[in-house]
Design a protein around this nucleic acid. Sequence first.
RNA 1: GCGAGAGUGGCGGAAUUGGCAGACGCACUAGAUUCAGGUUCUAGCGAUCGCAAGGUCGUGGGGGUUCAAGUCCCCCCUCUCGCACCA
Length: 832
Amino acid sequence: MFVMSFSDSYDPKKFEPKWQAYWEEHRSFQVREEAGKPKFYLLEMFPYPSGRIHMGHVRNYTIGDVLARFLKMRGYNVLHPMGWDAFGMPAENAAIKNKTHPAAWTKENIKTMQGQLRRLGFSYDWDREVATCDPEYYRWEQKIFIEMFHKGLAYKKKSLVNWCPSCQTVLANEQVEGGACWRCDSLVEQKPLEQWFLKITDYAEELLQETYNLKGWPDRVLTMQREWIGKSVGAEVVFKVEGSGEEIVVFTTRPDTLYGVTFLSLAAEHPLIDGLVKDEAKRAELEALRERVRKIDRDKRVADAYEKEGVALGVNVIHPLTGAKVPLFAANFVLMEYGTGAVMAVPAHDQRDYDFAKKYALPVQVVIEPKEGAKKPLDQAFVDPGVMVQSAQFDGMGSEEAKQAIVKFLEQQKHGKAKVTFKLRDWGISRQRYWGAPIPIVYCETCGAVPEKVENLPVRLPLDVEFTGEGGSPLGKIAFFVNAPCPKCGEPARRETDTMDTFMESSWYFFRYLSPKDNEEPFSRLSSDYWMPVDQYIGGIEHAVLHLLYSRFFTKILRDLGYTGVSEPFKNLLTQGMVIKDGAKMSKSKGNVVDPEYLIDKYGADTARLFCLFAAPPEKDLDWNDAGVEGSSRFLVRVWRLLTELFPLYRRRMGANTAPKPALSILRGVHTKLHQTIKKVTDDIQQDFHFNTAISAIMELVNKVAEVPRADWEGEEGAALLSQTLESLVLLLSPFVPHFCEEAWRNLGYDGSLLDFPWPSFDPEATQADLVTVVVQVNGKLRGKIDLPPQATEDEVKHFVDTDEKIKAHLEGKSVVKTIFVPGKLLNLVVK
RNA sequence: GCGAGAGUGGCGGAAUUGGCAGACGCACUAGAUUCAGGUUCUAGCGAUCGCAAGGUCGUGGGGGUUCAAGUCCCCCCUCUCGCACCA
């Protein structure tokens, strides 16, 4: 039924589609829970269906595919799903521009991109495919939202929010980068709006603590998350305003400096200011300050670029411990969003306060001195720990120790308390856009905001909508959507017209893959208990604090709602580098895009895959190089030709994993190299994903095999080794270039797929070469080399040295004072 | 400014515990095959001195430890990324 032959030249077009169809028909990558096998959940970040696959996708998914295939051959039950992050703004923009519908546009793109992924031969279980715009997907998100609402984890609040004027919608804090929109780079404005929020701050401490247990994540991602969460331990201190009942609460991380407070600074927008300042001239001055602060916001704040300035409010506050009167200022460097929007100023021990005090000639009161004695005069703030001075009963205490002591004292005196502050804010998830999952809430005159009944879910996004491109969500204009009965009292009410942030969908899609067709619940607990957590997650670094933080948060929510037993979704994370060409990230605007489909057409999918893997290790940026692609293609042609040439000598399964070490020296070399290569490829794949070195090791093996004269393969020993070598070679290459290897495997005479064969194994003893090069150095400089058995002794190497004229020349007239011998490596003679 | 990472031929990149720097590939050069080009094959390919044998230098710069440093320590420079007045 098949021909044992390598008669044809390498022509990927002829067999790549055939093998894709084979895997499909045989459901080669379909998996289910199996008790007998170790499980491995391998996940790559699912794409936004923008229209076409780009090189970044090819790289990301090829990296994942190598692992998936490798692990499958090593006996793991590998879950490797794929889906679509299908809601989002580009669909809406395209709809307006091209007079189409976001749903149609998205569906079309998914179809195209799915075809492209298939053409690359990725090993997905397509039966688990998920598209987040499917009502059967977002239905469960709505249910989870409602459960969060009931637990007080989803709530509505009016506040200043980030508004992108170009996207015409609100952005979460995580989605503002340097004051600009993460998607379109427009400058973000602040706008007061009523919005739905998720209480991620309830999980701030756990999200932070767990970062210390995520051993399989890159440090830099964990650091970014920790900084984003931004925990500060300190205290709140209450200052009474002189001549008024008002109190001002400040947050400080330096309670040890409390006796050094010489004034107080409020944020320009602090709500107490208006009540405290009656003077018209002062009010005008304040207004000018606020205007400048707003402008700074717009121009992106750069710490050093703006001088500290402020307005004296003409009001004093009372120091809670000393009773001293200290003046109150509004200052441009105090942020309303952080802490309490009010700061106690200690110029001696905080550089900002010091700068401010110098400018306005305010007193500087030292309360901590360095252990080695005070430096006078102070020309900048002293911010290090030291010894307490001028601090009443705390004098002489170490400042670190005094932090706690002073907080304790404040608590006793009821002037303050210990306090922990986070930079992390609650996650605003309302979006004033159409193409997203509806927020399942109905507003009723009498009952207020009421969640939709769970049995009525999904709240479907209406598809019959006009796209005009004019501001605002079109949902508000659709009467049959907006008008809904109150789920509680049944009276006519109005539906929420905002949709959910699309990061909601991507925060739990990896759970939905576990039972994607479940119509009882979001996903089954059983499948989650079997598959979760994701063993290896692969994707771009750009989601370090967005998607990856939200997903961690959602997982904890799902745990607390009883859906899963895991607290962290991703055990190991690999962040792959970008694809660079001509010094810049590939992008349409730069005009340096290479279309993957063009590559497949020209060279075949295997070449495209091979180049992505060979050009750089996964975590580094990949520098695109058209000539390099040629090289990868050439390598495959070369291997194919080698197989074709050697095929007549090949005898199937003759020494498949047992070929003994031959007597002939050149074959012994191949035998050693083969075992070394199996070891190296295996280690490189599973230890650090360094596929580039794995591939170069295979290239070396191929070079070695090609050097052997044909006649040397002909005896029994040679044939056994040839059998093992060729079969191992094909199996070792198969995770990287699967179509090539399946076809080669078949040509070698096998029916079916090589996926059913085990990964080659090696004999550690056989990796040891007969001879190793021992280096001879004189005074650390290389003077000679000799090939000797690895166990050669120092005396044997010295004996060689005595017979080598070149080395002897360097020893002429000198005496050896010391020798260093590293067996199998080198001999270093130190002479005088 | 703070934090993290990186700096190795013309290029992408390799180098267990410190032990032959430059694996593998690309580009390039010469030759062979073909002869229209391409493909393929052989050889060369860090710099420098030398006819050669061979020598000297060489992993951003400077110092140090060591028999031996790309690798360890100290100082400096450059680049990339992240954070950016967070009290």
